[in-house]
Amino acid sequence: MNSYAIGKVARQLALSVDTLRYYEKIGLLPKVSRAESGVRRYSDKDISRLKFIKRAQQMNFTLAEIGDLLNMRDDPQHARTEVRQLTENKLNEVEERLSELDTLRKELILLVNLCSASDEGCPIIDRIDEDENTV
């Protein structure tokens, strides 16, 4: 079974060492196993859990919400009704965000296509100017 030192995990996930310790302290991460020397050794499962936490934080979920979602992740069949409801709500938020991102993606593709077709002006610049003028 693979295990990783805290510094390596911190670098891989772009999180601070203090943050990793904090997640463990507040229970988002179960007690991390230790080497004989006493230093933490993170498993692949720990890293998967940390990636989930990071993604959820990027969606602006609170740590309390993330804790509930992790409980659901650990044991989806026996999740409490409130946690199931929270998970459904969060799923809807993710779907909405995806839809917004998809629209943004298409807009950027269009602008890049227009720019590459242009020998003169660049509509991306026009668009940015337009937005700045309307704010």
């Binding site: 629209t103 298409k106 593709i109 269009l110 227009l114 077709a117 509509p123 668009r127 337009e130």
Partner: peptide, 16 residues
């Protein structure tokens, strides 16, 4: 498409 970019993107237009 620059003037009406929201409408353009909503219809899936990605190039002219």
């Amino acid at each position: 498409v620059v003037e009406e970019i929201d409408h353009t993107v909503a219809l899936g237009v990605l190039a002219t």
